Amino acid sequence: METLTRLLGADALPLLFVISATFLLAGLVKGVVGLGLPTVAMALLGLVMTPAEAASLLIVPSAVTNAWQLLAGPNFRPLLRRLRPMLVGICAGTLAGGAMLPRDLTGYASTALGAALLLYAVIGLAAVRVAVPARMEAWAAPAVGAATGLVTSVTGVFVIPAVPYLHGLGLDKEDLVQALGLAFTVSTFSLAASLTLDGTFRPAVAATSFYALIPSLAGMFFGQWVRSRIRPEVFRKIFFAGLLALGAHLSLRSFMP
């Protein structure tokens, strides 16, 4: 919590500038490619603070933007019924991880965050697609949800393995976007509950998280304007390449003198 206590001190302005720039860029990425706000925010904030601190700042921007994505889709109820086992697993995994894992894992958490970003970037750059047969969903969904929750509790990133799993369900484009919004929204609120119980997500931090919503939305609107002027696939490759570099740096930082 040492970094976030600076928000109440005399040197709050530089930290607020970093937060503003980070969420502006994260919102831009989401506006262009339709995902990536939490991942980009965690990757960049992870350079200057612990994953738990970064995750606490992520709560409000992630909740609002992902709920927006969720509610914009046409098939909320059918998707909720189909994905319920995974969503329950996400809640259980996140809360269990937050309750059981030791709180003195700062260095390991940064390394784990880097590893999660590396894996996600490699999957994205390689365009890996894993087909999930319908007969496997009954047991795969809760297992994927629980694994995603555990990764979330350590790193604040809730894309592995949920995103590859959702891509493997064979959903059409609109349903996939809404399913991602649903999974990310549940992950965000589960993470918020875990961080609140842990004492990390406190009123002062929550206020700063609300502040981070402003640059996030500004970045999203600008990203939507940019999307009509560039090829999203090109931007997506740049996005994953950047995550690859950041993930490598975070993974190796703990081994550097």
Rank of each mutant, 00 (worst) to 15 (best):
L125H: 10
R135Q: 11
A140W: 06
A112C: 02
A52W: 14
C91R: 04
M136D: 15
N75M: 11
G114C: 05
T155D: 05
A115C: 13
N66K: 12
L58C: 12
V132L: 02
V60C: 03
V60P: 06
V40R: 06
L87D: 03
V159L: 10
L79C: 03
G46Q: 02
M86F: 03
A143E: 05
A140G: 06
A99F: 09
M42Q: 10
L150T: 05
R77Q: 13
E53D: 15
A115T: 11
I90L: 01
L37D: 03
A63W: 11
P61S: 05
A55I: 09
G97W: 00
T94G: 01
G89P: 09
V159F: 12
A143H: 05
V130H: 04
Q69V: 07
V64A: 11
R103S: 13
A41Y: 09
V144I: 15
P78S: 12
I59C: 00
R135A: 15
G156W: 01
P142I: 06
A92M: 09
V88C: 05
S56T: 11
G149F: 04
V159R: 04
L105I: 09
L87N: 09
L101S: 07
V60A: 13
D104T: 13
A141S: 15
M49D: 02
V130R: 09
L87C: 08
W139I: 09
E137Y: 08
L150G: 06
A55R: 05
L47R: 06
Q69S: 04
S153V: 07
S153P: 09
R82D: 14
T111I: 08
M86L: 14
V132F: 07
V40W: 04
A121Y: 04
R77K: 13
V132R: 01
R81K: 14
I123S: 03
V40I: 14
A140H: 06
V154G: 10
A143R: 03
G97S: 01
A41V: 13
A126W: 11
A55Y: 06
A72F: 10
P51R: 04
S56A: 15
V60Q: 01
A63D: 01
V88E: 02
L47S: 00
L105V: 12
N66M: 07
G36C: 07
A112K: 01
I123P: 05
E53W: 07
L80M: 07
T111M: 15
A146S: 10
V132A: 02
R77S: 13
L118M: 10
L117Y: 04
G124I: 06
L125F: 08
L58T: 11
W139Q: 12
P142A: 01
S153W: 04
